[in-house]
C-alpha cells in the first residue's frame, strides 16, 4: 500500500515538473527572458528539440524492455538489438540508395525492425529453450551485435538521405509547443504513438492481461491454460523489434549514417528508464524524457560555453544522472515478480 502511495506522489511530482517545463519553455521562448543565456540553454526550443530527439531511442528501448519484462524475460540485450537494428537499417538503406528516398528509408526501417525481432527471438530461444541465465543471454546479444556489425561494416558505404521533418498542419503553428512536438520526422511521431498503443494494449486487452500474468505469476497463468512460454517468445520478439526500430531511428532519422558502437550505451540507459518508469509505458516516456533532456543539456552547455568545466565532465552527465535515478528509485518501484526465472510447467519439470 505504501508503495502505491509513493508511486502516486512521484507521478504527481513528474506531472508538476512537466507542466513547469512547458510553462518555462513558453515564457522563455516568447518573452524577453530569451536574452538570458542560462535560461535559453535550459529551455530554448533548440534544447527541447534536441531533448525530444534524444528521448526517442531511449523510449523505444524502454518499451522494448517493458514488452520483454512484463512477460517475465529480463532483456539487458537492448543495446545489442539496437545496434543490430541500426546496422541492418543502414545496410538496406545503402543497398536501396537508388530507390525513391521514402521507399528506401521505409525498407531500412523494415530491416531494422526485422533484425531486431530476430535478435529478440534469439534471446528468447536462449533463455527459454536453452534455459540460459537471461542476463548472460542478453550479454551474448550485445557482444554478438558488436562483433557482427564491426566485422561486416563497410566503412566506405554511404547512406544517401534521411527522414525529414513532417510538420503536422495546424498544430505545428502553435508557438513553442508546435515547434517542439508537431514538427518532427515520422519515427518520432511513431515512437510517441507506440507509447499510447502499448499502454492500452497492456492494460486493456486480452494480450496485455495474459502478458502481465506471465510476468507476475506464470504458474497462475499456466493453470488457466495460458501457454506462458509462447507469450514470452512473442513478447521478447516484439521487444526486439522495438529495439531494432530504435536503432533504425538512430541511422535513418537522427544521424543518417552508421558508426561502430553508435548506440553508445543508449540501450542501457533505456533499461534504467524502464526501471525508473516502473515498467509503465508513460512512466518510461517520462524517464526517457528526463535522460534525453540531460543529453540535450550536455550539448547546449557545450555549445553555449556557459560553464568552465572540461567537456569530459559535462559528457558524464547522462550517465551520472542514470546512476542517481536508478539508485534513488529502484527500491520504490516494483518489477514483475517472476522476471528472470525460467518457467517450467509441472509436466516438464
Amino acid at each position: 500500500m505504501s508503495r502505491k502511495r509513493v508511486w502516486k506522489t512521484s507521478s504527481i511530482v513528474s506531472m508538476v515538473l512537466a507542466v513547469g517545463l512547458v510553462v518555462m519553455a513558453i515564457l522563455v521562448n516568447t518573452t524577453s527572458l530569451s536574452q538570458q543565456t542560462w535560461l535559453r540553454v535550459l529551455f530554448g526550443v533548440s534544447a527541447l528539440n534536441f531533448a525530444l530527439r534524444a528521448t526517442v531511442p531511449l523510449v523505444l528501448g524502454a518499451l522494448s524492455g517493458i514488452l520483454c519484462e512484463r512477460s517475465g524475460i529480463i532483456n539487458i540485450g537492448i543495446e545489442g538489438m539496437m545496434l543490430a537494428g541500426a546496422f541492418a537499417g543502414f545496410v538496406v538503406k545503402v543497398a536501396t540508395n537508388s530507390w525513391p528516398l521514402g521507399m528506401s528509408l521505409m525498407a531500412g526501417v523494415l530491416a531494422a525492425v526485422l533484425i531486431g525481432g530476430v535478435m529478440g527471438l534469439l534471446h528468447a530461444t536462449l533463455s527459454i529453450r536453452y534455459r540460459m541465465d537471461q542476463i548472460i543471454s542478453g550479454t551474448i546479444i550485445i557482444i554478438l551485435a558488436a562483433g557482427f556489425t564491426a566485422y561486416l561494416f563497410d566503412r566506405d558505404a554511404v547512406a544517401e538521405g534521411k527522414f525529414v521533418a513532417m510538420p503536422i498542419p495546424g498544430l505545428s503553428k502553435i508557438p513553442v509547443l508546435g515547434e517542439v512536438l508537431f514538427n518532427n520526422p515520422p519515427l518520432t511521431y511513431l515512437a510517441l504513438i507506440l507509447v499510447v498503443v502499448l499502454h492500452v494494449a497492456l492494460f486493456h486487452t486480452r494480450w496485455g492481461l495474459r502478458t502481465r500474468a506471465c510476468g507476475e505469476h506464470p504458474r497462475a497463468a499456466d493453470t488457466v491454460g495460458i501457454n506462458v512460454n509462447r507469450y514470452r517468445y512473442m513478447n521478447t520478439t516484439l521487444g526486439g523489434m522495438m529495439a531494432g526500430l530504435a536503432g533504425g531511428f538512430l541511422v535513418l532519422e537522427a544521424v543518417g549514417q552508421f558508426q561502430e558502437g553508435m548506440t553508445a550505451g543508449r540501450g542501457f540507459i533505456s533499461l534504467a528508464a524502464m526501471i525508473f518508469g516502473n515498467w509503465m509505458p508513460f512512466g518510461a516516456l517520462g524517464a526517457s524524457a528526463l535522460f534525453g533532456y540531460t543529453q540535450a543539456l550536455q550539448n547546449e552547455l557545450l555549445l553555449a560555453g556557459v560553464v568552465n568545466v572540461p567537456r569530459h565532465f559535462i559528457s558524464m552527465l547522462p550517465y551520472v544522472v542514470t546512476i542517481v535515478a536508478v539508485s534513488g528509485f529502484v527500491g520504490r518501484v516494483r518489477p514483475p515478480a517472476a522476471e528472470g526465472k525460467v518457467y517450467e510447467t509441472e509436466s516438464s519439470a
Binding site: I76, P310, M316, S327
Partner: peptide, 30 residues
C-alpha cells in the same frame, strides 16, 4: 555500495561507470 544501500542493480551502475571512467580517463590525458 550503491547496491547494498539503495538496491540499484550492479548491471546498470557498472555499465554507466564504464562510460564515466572512460570520460574521466580521457580527461586526464586530454
Amino acid at each position: 555500495l550503491l547496491k547494498v544501500t539503495t538496491g540499484a542493480h550492479e548491471v546498470i551502475t557498472t555499465i554507466m561507470l564504464n562510460y564515466v571512467a572512460s570520460l574521466f580517463a580521457g580527461w586526464t590525458v586530454y
